[in-house]
């Protein structure tokens, strides 16, 4: 897939206008999302219609995003910097609530439940929809306590033995247990960058969420650590729905089943990853994946 993308990028005819100043030029082109954004009710995990996000001063960050996210799929969100892909990701677990002056409108449903509904509690939502951040952010506590924090918080373990089991299985799923089993009581911040990120993933899956949101999880890591995490994501797909924001198109191509392309706050195209990278339907998508801008 990677090779195909690269070959395609190289072979793409250079007939389009150069990218300089291209953003404004292309902005009016986006009228609606092309491709297949909807799953027509089949195994939909997240359902999002007409989502807009405003920051302080009515600055609109994303415009009318309509997309479905399927169960146990990996959906990659790509696009140039500042295109709103992270903002959209943070809508899905209401992380934007924590930003002063940020306002989200529209309809987002998790398993058919409105996540902005009155009876919906953001704390419960975040236990169901875990998040892994761009910069590894383990707590300055021991490895064990990092992973045990969530289960302790939500009372998931009845006793120490159960907690030990949760910690071990989470670390195992995150592919970290072998490396750290002899030093669970050492600080999590003493691990390498890649290990720290896997610790953060273990911390997230320890709460047994249904969805894991990943905001550029490998952008601070070296290629080897990145490869480990990518393998991990592929394994995690068996039990979780994963939404990943990435700057690397190769990564999106390698790990995702569907890819969403954002441009200037608008969702331009959603389709099977293969289709997006081999046969993009929108001019902007094609420009982006062929490296014309972004």
């Amino acid at each position: 897939m990677t090779e195909a993308t690269l070959n395609m990028a190289a072979a793409a005819p250079q007939t389009h206008k150069p990218a300089a100043g291209g953003r404004e030029e292309f902005a009016h082109d986006i009228t609606g999302t092309v491709g297949k954004p909807f799953l027509d009710g089949k195994d939909t995990k997240f359902f999002s219609r007409g989502v807009n996000v405003f920051y302080t001063g009515n600055k609109q960050a994303i415009f009318d995003v309509n997309v479905d996210i399927g169960r146990n799929e990996v959906i990659a969100m790509i696009g140039p910097s500042g295109c709103g892909k992270s903002t959209f990701l943070r809508c899905l677990n209401r992380m934007n609530d924590t930003i002063a002056g940020c306002r989200v409108t529209g309809d987002i449903r998790l398993d058919g439940e409105d996540i902005h509904g009155k009876e919906q509690d953001p704390v419960l939502l975040r236990a169901r929809v875990g998040m892994v951040f761009q910069k590894p952010n383990p707590f300055p506590k021991s490895i064990y306590d990092n992973v045990a924090y969530g289960p302790r918080l939500h009372g998931l373990a009845a006793n120490r033995a159960e907690l030990d089991e949760i910690v071990e299985s989470s670390l195992t799923k995150a592919g970290l247990f072998k490396e750290v089993k002899d030093r669970l009581q050492t600080p999590g911040t003493g691990l390498s960058g890649g290990q720290q990120q896997r610790l953060c993933i273990a911390r997230t899956i320890a709460v047994s969420p249904e969805v894991i949101l990943m905001d550029e999880p490998t952008s601070a890591l070296d290629p080897i650590a990145t490869a480990t995490i990518e393998e991990l994501i592929d394994e995690l797909r068996q039990s979780f729905t994963i939404c990943i924001v990435t700057h690397s198109m190769q990564q999106a191509a390698r790990i995702s089943q569907r890819t969403a392309y954002f441009h200037m706050g608008k969702l331009v195209e959603v389709n099977n990853t293969k289709t997006v990278f081999t046969n993009p339907q929108h001019q902007l998508t094609e420009n982006y994946i062929t490296g014309r801008f972004g």
Binding site: N93, M95, T98, V123, L124, R126, A127, G130, M131, V132, F133, K135, N137, P138, F139, P140, Y149, G150, L153, H154, C200, R203, T204, A206, V207
Partner: peptide, 23 residues
């Protein structure tokens, strides 16, 4: 205190008060 610590705690379902007092 870096905001990433607050987000990390909120991201696994800690309430605002818990993220403040635990971390």
């Amino acid at each position: 205190v870096p905001p990433s610590i607050r987000e990390g705690a909120l991201g696994i379902g800690a309430s605002k008060t818990q993220s403040v007092f635990h971390h």
